[in-house]
Design a protein around this nucleic acid. Structure first.
Lengths: 225, 225
DNA sequence: CATCGCGTTTAGCCTCGTCTAACCCTAAAT
DNA sequence: ATTTAGGGTTAGACGAGGCTAAACGCGATG
């Protein structure tokens, strides 16, 4: 019914939508999927025909409920796979993305269920990203904001590291930035770079703004104020 | 480099070659892959261009060494996956073929290695089919012949059940026909049907010739003669 | 309110893997 | 040796998914 490529487009639109809340532009999808804009336009025609996206010419698209359901299914596959690979096949969190990206389109519902069972129905993947539930209801937006919204002196808990680059992830793990750790923000540079002290490592770690932006954190129970 | 579809053709040719030892006909490949003959012809053109098959027009193909290596890689993936799914994800031997068929093209070398490690370098899959080794050397033809070559009174050990049909496999398992069991052949009907007594079940089991043909067996250490 | 730049869409082309219809080769049978 | 059945190949089409080049709409600018 739906091709792998169509699933990729829907997933891309879904993920872009989570970040911006606005209609998604052709060019944003093109960049995400590394294809040209005309290619995206023609695929959007097809997705619109099938009722998977709402479209306004020249103004971008949003997912329909049906399109979102498909996207959630793909995202569920992806994140379950990431979790399974780290838990049962000794993968590092930096390596799982690529493998999951290829496998996510090719597993059966049966496989999905067995993997979920083996992991005891996990709710987050190794990067702290929420795994959509089996019923594919629209998950609520996780609370917690980007670490870039905090200030010097704040102490926060890392909830999600939404980066996909293997080298970046390895660097972050080596410097104690992973879901679950506490960060004390020691400096916010004028150009956005954040320097923090991790509860898991000596010394400090510095995150350029583009990377810090993908680190979602929550403030632990406040000590004062 | 090589598409999934090309891999499928090479695998099909490899498997047909294991059965017959002769040049493989267009129509045999077409039947195996459920496509039409002209489709096969045009794919064989491409495989020949790439040096993966030796071709004689109107007389079928054989794999080149390079083509065989590719086929062995795919078969290794397939059988490792089958073994992994049964060992670690609680799949039944009847269910694994389809899943492995879809995944075999999409796993990395890394994944292959990790799965092989998790299984402690297995040499056969759940159906008793040999798993090509990691170096992809041409495996020797397993000894043992089809059970159809034996006669009433012979006692044999099942080595491989090379069927892919889930219903057939379920039936066979239910009736005690699996790798490792001993079969005593109690009747060979004129139309080829074999009736046997399994060491694992009461009563007898009858196998139509088309199914019996896929059951490869060895004769255990002879008692007399 | 006319223009201009940038991003989107249209138009047209390509490759891959598939099909059907028509043609042609091989091998077996006479 | 000729015929013929059956299977293989050629020819031409199509849908999917990609591209480049050119046309066009939107929104900001003067």
């Amino acid at each position: 019914m739906l091709s792998d490529v169509m699933e990729d487009y829907l997933k891309a639109i879904y993920q872009l939508q989570r970040e911006t809340d606005e209609r998604i532009k052709t060019s944003a999808i093109a960049e995400e999927l590394e294809v040209t804009s005309p290619t995206v336009t023609s695929m959007l025609d097809k997705l619109e025909e099938r009722g998977l996206v709402d479209r306004e010419k020249y103004r971008g698209v949003t997912l329909t409920d049906e399109g979102e359901t498909v996207a959630l299914e793909v995202v569920r596959h992806h994140r379950l796979l990431e979790a399974y690979l780290t838990e049962h096949l000794d993968y590092d969190w930096a390596e799982v993305h690529e493998e999951a990206d290829r496998l996510e389109h090719h597993i059966s519902e049966d496989f999905e269920a067995r993997v979920a069972d083996a992991l005891d129905q996990p709710t987050v993947d190794p990067h702290g990203s929420p795994i959509p539930s089996a019923d594919l209801e629209r998950p609520e937006r996780p609370d917690g904001k980007s670490v870039t919204e905090y200030e010097e002196g704040d102490v926060v808990t890392v909830e999600e590291v939404a980066d996909r680059d293997a080298e970046v992830l390895t660097y972050l793990a080596d410097h104690g930035v992973e879901p679950g750790v506490e960060l004390e923000i020691v400096e916010v540079a004028p150009f956005g770079m954040i320097t923090a002290r991790s509860s898991r490592r000596d010394g400090t770690v510095s995150l350029p703004e583009s990377i810090a932006h993908h680190v979602r954190v929550a403030q632990p129970a406040e000590v004062d104020g």
